[in-house]
Design a protein around this nucleic acid. Structure first.
Length: 406
DNA sequence: TCTGGGGTCCTTTTCCTT
DNA sequence: TCTGAAGGAAAAGGACCC
């Protein structure tokens, strides 16, 4: 049997992406909303309370459509996490402000984001994949890479039969559909899975590069976002073919050695990144955008309470996940949307709320508090597992004194 | 005018030490 | 004691992703 580890040309990597994941989960729960404009996002409280007060989580499928909260009822800040296709007809899309969306489609149903529910389905579909192979890289709640290289039959049809089997098993387990792309590496597999959504299966080989990848806009490359895309467009490079036509030297001159070479390789479909079947978190953080901009002096008590709560939440998250960290930082976003961060690396590892708060407070003192704030965040990095940390440090899980000075 | 939250990764800047 | 170079680590910022 050929071993793909020694034969890069035999690599078959699948990228699997759930179709409109959050919206699809919500429609399983509320089938009466099928076909209606529905947006998911905003603050949890409004819609949650609205439904739970009246129905308490029972017989959700029986809730009359007329009883669902609407965009027009929403007051406050927030953005749309995702929108159903019916809502997109109104020009509503991800990351749009809710107030703006409400102006365009006031009657759209507004549902809160329910991560606990999405995680439940996430575990179900990943379990189906792991039943086929342990060679899976977790890429978040609704997508994964899978190394099919050594599975029986993959080299007979490029992986199509395995992709069909995955789709079938996942649908049976969850009632949800997904799209699958199979290609020689992660970069191409990711692009392949987006070629034919929803419920698509796209099988790519190196020979398909010019016909199926090169006509796509540069932004379809995972890692090229709006900023990079605009810069490329400014140089007259719009499609991946345009990018591929440039010499490595030309790209390196304009984008630096590392990035230039990466662009060149990506445009030529080259990517040798291995699958990462196990990953450790790099940082754990909590942040919150206030319902209204808060003044550092006039709203001091409110800010202090929020700050204390964020520290306590991060500490709880660390303890629950079994980590301690020694770099503690804060993030502030001013009313003009400018953000600043400060952090400090200490001697000891900790997951203690009071210790986090004390260090974070020092960080906070290093930034100018001369205008209103819209966001505050607390972050811990330089993490290690609690049982492998280099030395014993601060006590864990102490209760936090409330409402100290900021 | 509007712009969430939780992350990763990369580059640049700043600081410290020799 | 001052100054500058060099290198590394830490800090800061930004782009990107889900």
């Amino acid at each position: 049997m050929p071993d793909s580890k020694d034969r890069p040309d035999l690599r078959r990597i699948a990228h699997l992406d759930m179709d409109a994941f959050y919206a699809s989960v919500e429609l399983l729960r509320y089938p009466q909303l099928q076909g209606l404009p529905v947006v998911i996002g905003g603050a949890r409280r409004s819609a949650d309370e609205h439904l739970s007060q009246r129905y308490g989580g029972n017989a959700l499928a029986d809730i009359p459509v007329a009883d669902f909260p609407r965009l027009r009822d929403y007051i406050g800040r927030g953005v749309i996490t995702t929108a159903t296709y019916a809502a997109r007809q109104f020009g509503i899309g991800s990351a749009m402000g809710l107030m703006k969306a409400a102006a365009q489609c006031p009657d759209a149903v507004l549902l809160p984001v329910d991560f606990a529910e999405y995680r439940k389905y996430s575990r179900l579909f990943k379990a189906e994949i792991l039943a086929l192979t342990p060679r899976m890289e977790d890429r978040g709640i609704d997508e994964v890479y899978i190394d099919l290289s050594d599975l029986a039959g993959v080299h007979d049809d490029g992986g199509r039969e395995l992709a069909v089997r995955l789709q079938t098993n996942i649908f049976a387990a969850t009632g949800l559909t997904c799209s699958v792309g199979v290609a020689p590496n992660k970069l191409l597999a990711k692009m392949a899975s987006e070629l034919d959504k929803p419920r698509g299966i796209s099988i790519l080989t190196a020979a398909d590069l010019e016909t199926r990848i090169w006509p796509l806009p540069c932004q379809k490359i995972h890692g090229i976002g709006p900023k990079m895309s605009a810069k490329l467009a400014g140089l007259g490079l719009h499609s991946i073919a345009d990018l591929a036509a440039q010499s490595p030297a030309w790209l390196m001159q304009r984008f630096g050695a590392t990035h230039g070479l990466w662009l060149y390789d990506a445009a030529h479909g080259r990517d040798e990144r291995p699958l990462q079947t196990a990953t450790e978190p790099v940082s754990i953080s909590r942040e919150t955008t206030f319902a209204r901009d808060l003044h550092p002096v006039q709203d001091k008590a409110e800010l202090r309470a929020i700050f204390t709560r964020l520290c306590a939440q991060v500490a709880t998250d660390l303890q629950r996940k079994g980590y301690v960290g020694r770099t503690i930082g804060i993030k502030v976003r001013y009313d003009n949307f400018k953000s600043v961060t400060r952090d400090h690396t200490g001697e000891d590892y900790t997951a203690d709320a009071a210790t986090l708060r004390a260090t974070a407070r020092h960080c906070l003192r290093r930034i100018p508090l001369d205008r209103r704030l819209r966001l505050l965040g607390v972050r811990v990095s330089s993490l290690c597992k609690i049982d492998t940390r280099p030395q014993a440090s601060s006590p864990l899980g102490r209760t936090l004194p409330l409402f100290e000075d900021l």
